[in-house]
Computed example of a mutant assay.
Amino acid sequence: MRISARADYAVRAALQLVASQDDGPLKAKVISDAQDIPYKFLESILNDMRRSGLVLSRRGGNGGYRLARPPESISIADVIRSVDGPLVSVRGVRPPDLSYTGPAESLLPLWIALRSNVREILEGVSLADVASGQLPPAVSALTDSPAAWVNP
């Protein structure tokens, strides 16, 4: 599975909004500078997040962006879907819409299982969890093995 730059930037921007939520709306330039995200790219990402109902925007001198809901109610999956669409697809197709024949038939349940596990992790972790540094125990446990940190 690959996390796109767009998804990574979206999650980082959302976390910046969590960190600054008590300061009022945050300008895109402030988020861009704080997270080292290209400004024009960030504007597009924030617009996608606004259209998805994750952030609110206000124009003007006191304007900027803020989360539309409490960070506890926004999952990492919500943020990724807002900018990239489905969490898992195969050649741009959602697994249930695929069909295979012959020796490849068992690929479909494999892709479904992968999607299920990705959903379980990303839907089970909120922006508040990441911002606080307190990932859910089941997610933290997955990082306990040294093999989890090594590329085969």
Score class of each variant (00 low, 15 high):
residue 78 D to Q: 03
residue 48 D to S: 12
residue 118 V to H: 07
residue 12 R to M: 03
residue 96 P to F: 12
residue 40 K to W: 11
residue 75 S to F: 01
residue 150 V to C: 06
residue 48 D to W: 04
residue 102 G to E: 07
residue 91 R to H: 15
residue 90 V to E: 07
residue 74 I to N: 00
residue 111 W to V: 07
residue 112 I to K: 12
residue 78 D to A: 06
residue 45 I to G: 02
residue 132 S to R: 10
residue 38 P to L: 10
residue 4 S to L: 11
residue 135 L to G: 09
residue 56 L to W: 10
residue 51 R to C: 06
residue 51 R to N: 10
residue 34 A to W: 01
residue 78 D to R: 00
residue 116 S to D: 14
residue 21 Q to D: 05
residue 4 S to W: 13
residue 50 R to Y: 05
residue 71 P to A: 04
residue 81 R to H: 01
residue 135 L to V: 06
residue 78 D to K: 00
residue 15 L to A: 02
residue 25 P to Q: 09
residue 136 P to G: 07
residue 56 L to A: 09
residue 135 L to H: 02
residue 3 I to N: 08
residue 48 D to H: 09
residue 7 A to L: 08
residue 111 W to E: 06
residue 84 D to Q: 06
residue 26 L to I: 14
residue 151 N to V: 13
residue 35 Q to C: 09
residue 132 S to Y: 11
residue 23 D to F: 15
residue 77 A to H: 04
residue 146 P to I: 05
residue 88 V to G: 12
residue 72 E to A: 10
residue 14 A to W: 01
residue 56 L to I: 12
residue 47 N to I: 09
residue 127 L to P: 04
residue 65 Y to M: 02
residue 27 K to P: 05
residue 13 A to V: 01
residue 88 V to S: 13
residue 139 V to A: 02
residue 127 L to Q: 02
residue 18 V to H: 04
residue 141 A to S: 12
residue 22 D to I: 13
residue 77 A to L: 04
residue 133 G to D: 12
residue 66 R to V: 12
residue 138 A to V: 09
residue 62 N to G: 15
residue 21 Q to F: 00
residue 101 T to Q: 14
residue 42 L to P: 05
residue 19 A to Y: 05
residue 18 V to Q: 04
residue 33 D to G: 10
residue 21 Q to N: 07
residue 14 A to K: 01
residue 67 L to F: 00
residue 97 D to E: 15
residue 48 D to R: 08
residue 16 Q to G: 09
residue 120 E to I: 11
residue 65 Y to K: 00
residue 30 V to I: 14
residue 133 G to M: 11
residue 38 P to Y: 13
residue 64 G to W: 00
residue 87 L to P: 04
residue 75 S to Y: 06
residue 142 L to G: 10
residue 63 G to R: 03
residue 23 D to S: 14
residue 108 L to R: 15
residue 56 L to D: 09
residue 130 V to A: 07
residue 104 A to N: 10
residue 129 D to A: 01
residue 147 A to R: 15
residue 142 L to N: 06
residue 43 E to N: 15
residue 113 A to R: 14
residue 106 S to G: 11
residue 147 A to W: 09
residue 117 N to V: 10
residue 130 V to N: 03
residue 129 D to E: 03
residue 122 L to P: 01
residue 50 R to Q: 07
residue 62 N to W: 03
residue 147 A to E: 13
residue 83 V to W: 02
residue 45 I to L: 06
residue 31 I to N: 03
residue 55 V to S: 01
residue 140 S to R: 12
residue 14 A to Q: 04
residue 14 A to M: 07
residue 20 S to C: 11
residue 152 P to I: 05
residue 113 A to L: 11
residue 135 L to S: 07
residue 49 M to A: 03
residue 137 P to I: 09
residue 111 W to K: 04
residue 29 K to D: 13
residue 102 G to C: 07
residue 20 S to Y: 09
residue 93 V to P: 04
residue 58 R to G: 01
residue 103 P to Q: 10
residue 131 A to L: 06
residue 129 D to P: 01
residue 105 E to S: 15
residue 83 V to L: 04
residue 100 Y to I: 09
